[in-house]
Write a protein that binds this DNA or RNA. Structure first.
Length: 403
DNA sequence: AGTCCTTTGAAGAGA
DNA sequence: TCTCTTCAAAGGACT
């Protein structure tokens, strides 16, 4: 039933979930645009994207040179956002069972029969699509993430990497195996990538090349800032790609739920739960402490529904909480408005920027560039210090971690 | 081998 | 309805 519901109403879901700034036009462009073909959102079919003025496959291809990343991301990365590694270890197996995901209760539609009319498959199903892509020999095409339709989807990966994929290939051999062992080798369907993940996927190599960094935590901090530095139009491209990716994912795995992958980081989960239980910086507790409206007031100057920045910075208290309309709630030194107070307190971050517990010594002269003051206080392993430098030629040096 | 770090966004669970 | 949690990618560092 859940699968049916999800398949029947994806358009509404996506439109509702579109970021606010997408309301301007994106939503209105959408009606019916996917109804012609069930897989019109499928990456391989997006050779000419109506959302991209020049029909480019890459949202940044018209402004950012494609850098072949070390991990082999395909130039079409934004539309094929899954790691090739997951598939490069298994050559095409004609014996690959079509229905490889029964364990997770994913209903694998047998062509058109099980797909509600909202996603009418073209005659012959998606399988007819592949011949038109004869030029396209992406490794994913040869992987074991093969959909019933014959089109692989990179979201299908083994539970824990390459070795399991090799096991999985062996499973293709007609050798009877214990049921329990078989179940343990069932691949995992991963979540579709969101807009920021798609952006990271594309820009990571560029940042690595610029900064000669490889540590992802530091790279991601840079990418996070650059993401906020993007214009709405630029971000909208990634939101749209993500929306299509979700739609494709929903089409391929109608019964899949993000919940299927819950519980795979159990240690971290437990620690976080313990932490949250005793964390006085939680928004709810901060609001309670300041007598704020739990429903409408924001916690702290960050205006994010997360932990209080000031608390995390060591002040041990919430400061300058603002109401939902931006007006000050406590009594700071009479700022013009809460937003200005916020931006003055955190000059290098936009309002929506992530809470960086590191003290902001001076405004970031290159917002969006690879300017990393320091790493998080939550990390006992300072990673990188990035000097202020133009975005085109940032310089990085590895901070002495003191280890 | 498994987990952490770090980012944003989507989705699910629970209050 | 809102808040909170988890996971998605990445790879070096750590346990």
């Amino acid at each position: 039933m859940q699968a049916i519901r999800r398949v029947q109403d994806p358009q509404r879901v996506y439109q509702e979930k579109l970021p606010d700034h997408m309301d301007d036009g994106m939503k209105h462009q959408d009606p019916g645009m996917y109804k012609g073909s069930a897989y019109s959102g499928y990456p391989f079919l997006m050779l000419s994207d109506p959302y991209l003025p020049n029909g480019s496959m890459s949202p940044l291809s018209n402004k950012v040179p494609v850098v072949q990343p070390s991990h082999g991301v395909h130039p079409l990365t934004p539309l094929i956002p899954y790691s090739n590694d997951h598939f490069s270890h298994s050559s095409h197996s004609p014996h690959l069972p079509a229905d490889i995901n029964q364990k997770q209760g994913v209903h694998r539609p047998s062509q058109t029969s099980d797909i509600p009319g909202f996603y009418p498959l073209p005659p012959g199903g998606v399988g007819q699509i592949t011949p038109s892509m004869g030029w396209f020999t992406h490794p994913l095409m040869l992987g074991s993430g093969m959909h019933t339709t014959g089109i692989p989807h990179p979201a299908i990966v083994p539970h824990s990497g390459k070795q399991e994929m090799e096991h999985y290939d062996r499973n293709m051999k007609p050798q009877p195996e214990p049921k329990r062992e078989k179940e343990a080798k069932k691949p995992t369907i991963k979540k579709p990538l969101n807009a920021f993940m798609l952006y990271m996927k594309e820009m990571r190599a560029k940042v690595i090349a610029e900064c000669t960094l490889k540590e992802s935590a530091a790279i991601n901090q840079i990418l996070g800032r650059r993401w906020h530095a993007l214009s709405r139009e630029e971000q909208a491209k990634y939101y749209e790609l993500a929306r299509k990716e979700r739609q494709l994912h929903m089409q391929l795995y109608p019964g899949w739920s993000a919940r299927d992958n819950y519980g795979k980081k159990k240690r971290r989960t437990r620690e976080k739960q313990q932490d949250s239980n005793s964390d006085p910086a939680s928004p709810k507790k901060c609001r309670a402490r300041f007598g704020l409206n739990q429903q409408t007031d924001w916690c702290g100057p960050c205006r994010r529904k997360k932990k209080c920045i000031r608390y995390l910075q060591g002040e041990g208290r919430c400061a300058s909480p603002v109401s939902s309309d931006g007006s000050a709630i406590d009594s700071p030194p009479s700022p013009p408005d809460a937003l200005q107070r916020i931006s003055s307190a955190f000059p290098s971050d936009k309002l929506a920027a992530p809470a960086d517990p590191a003290p902001k010594e001076q405004p970031d002269p290159f917002p969006g560039s690879a300017h990393l003051q320091t790493t998080s206080s939550s990390s006992s392993r300072p990673i990188t210090r990035c000097s202020s430098a133009p975005a085109e030629s940032p310089t990085f040096s590895v901070a002495s971690s003191g280890t």
